[in-house]
Amino acid sequence: MGKFDDIGKLMYLPLEEIKTDGQSYESDFIISAAAEAVLQAGGRNWIPIIVKEISDNNYLVVSNYFIYAVAQKAELERVWCIVIESDEKSIEQAKILARETIPKVNLSVATRETILAALRYLISEPGSALKGVDPVIAANKISEAKRETWSNFNPITTLRCGITKGKKLDALSKVFFLSQPKPSEPPPPAPEIISIKRASRDEIFSHLSYLSKYKIGGFEAIDPDQAADVIFTASKSKWKSLNPISKLECGIDTAKIKTLKTVFSL
């Protein structure tokens, strides 16, 4: 948000420079009538489209898709837009405020009140899969359960609160998420073992990154970048095993050498 960019500003941008990757799903009647209303105001849309800048003179609609559709219908030459930060969080927030996305709360830590309010919302939705679930009872039981340890919503089905596996349980993900990372998928096959003496710095880095990324043998605590530098620059000609690495003070101790052997040879 500075002098040299347009973030946060209300801009009057050429419609042809704006692309969209989303749609609004309104009836033709609403779109046409809204376009007419905009045209009657001399083509001025008082509620702006929310866009992010992709490159110079190149924008992408990230929210208020409806207004984009109206501008297209009205064949406006330029349209009023707000340019927002292009990170995911800002875009998510814009969509939430425009009522295009339903905000989610962290079920691992949410208060009972929040859970109750969220369940009431879900149940009141037309055609809700949770019809028949009593929000008060469900909120009581969920809030009293050991939620911090949940990695998915399945434990809810054992609480006997009317939320069963299938549609009902799935509906919860509309408003809830869990902070606990989902159990990690089995890591992809390990990279081929290479000789640590001959490996390039990048090869050492990529092998260490694999161990670190998939949290194998406690390597998630290692900074692969730094460790790769240390190992690469160390004088290795006299090494008779990988054990000297534990003395390099790069975080890899003797306990980790065994894991290291799954991706490196001497």
């Binding site: 009972r112 109750l116 009593d134 008060v136 009872i137 909120a139 009581n140 039981k141």
Partner: peptide, 12 residues
Amino acid sequence: STVEQHYLGFAK
């Protein structure tokens, strides 16, 4: 227990 849950919710 269902009635209990409702009154518990009420009390809370």
